[in-house]
């Protein structure tokens, strides 16, 4: 699905990603954990193609195609979805209008019929039920005046509608209470299939109780310093990142 090799990236001339190697196969869920400021969001943004980040070295292939050569919207059309850590507000543009425009662009790119308003609203209703979102949110401006939790849920709604091949969730769990967390996890789990994959960025082990990952990676200071199975997350929870950092210092 996605193959990241020796990825280096800068922001404002400062190197944040210092050689990331990561391969995610179809059907897998990978968790990326790590302390604040270690570069988790940077990795997510670089994969989605945010213009503020410059890739200086390395390669990324999505289904064998050069991801780094694509415009952000082309990446989206190719099936990459990013649930933002900080979703953006678009005043005056309704949630449903926005999402319909996106979905139809993606469908067009895939050679599928565009959905008309009726078809889309039907789909939207179903998906809103799935993430337990009140119908009124469809007509509200994108993320404007949404609480932190509502914004996150809205990201999951968008994911559910767009049905990406590869979903990257950037701290979608932060700021969520336990009920909301379960809903988000359920949304992700429903999408899980042998054809799809997900990269779940999180700070806490908590989410991984509900979205059980196949692999866990620890990102520290722009590098993946440790990888393992789902038990690694529990280990981190018990010992914190300090133990890992110490281990690293000893081996260095």
């Amino acid at each position: 699905m996605i193959e990241i090799k020796n990825l280096h990236a800068n922001v404002n001339g400062r190197e944040i990603l210092k050689g990331i190697d990561l391969t995610v196969k179809a059907g897998e869920v990978h968790a990326i954990m790590g302390p604040n400021g270690s570069g988790k969001s940077t990795l997510a943004q670089v994969l989605a193609g945010h213009p503020a980040y410059q890739v200086t070295q390395g390669s990324v292939l999505l289904d064998g195609k050069d991801l780094l050569d694509m415009e952000p919207e082309e990446r989206s059309h190719a099936g990459l979805f990013l649930a933002f850590q900080y979703p953006v507000e678009i005043p005056g543009v309704s949630n449903s209008y926005f999402l319909k425009a996106g979905l139809n662009e993606i469908r067009k790119a895939r050679g599928e019929e565009e959905l008309d308003s009726m078809q889309f609203l039907k789909l939207l209703k179903e998906k809103m039920k799935l993430v337990e979102m009140e119908a009124s949110f469809a007509n509200r401006p994108v993320n404007e005046g949404f609480s932190g939790g509502e914004k996150k849920r809205n990201e999951i709604l968008q994911m559910a509608v767009l049905e990406p091949k590869l979903a990257i969730l950037d701290e979608t769990d932060s700021g969520l209470d336990i009920d909301a967390l379960k809903i988000v996890a359920e949304g992700v789990n429903k999408l899980r299939s042998p054809k799809n994959a997900a990269i779940v960025v999180t700070h806490y082990q908590r989410l991984l109780n509900y979205i059980v990952p196949d692999f866990v990676h620890v990102l520290v200071n722009g590098r993946i310093v440790k990888s393992g199975g789902k038990e690694l997350a529990l280990e981190l929870e018990a010992n914190g990142y300090d133990t890992i950092k110490e281990e690293l210092q000893q081996t260095a």
Partner: peptide, 8 residues
């Protein structure tokens, strides 16, 4: 960027 990420 947010719009572009959603395919627009």
């Amino acid at each position: 960027f947010y719009c572009k990420q959603r395919g627009i």
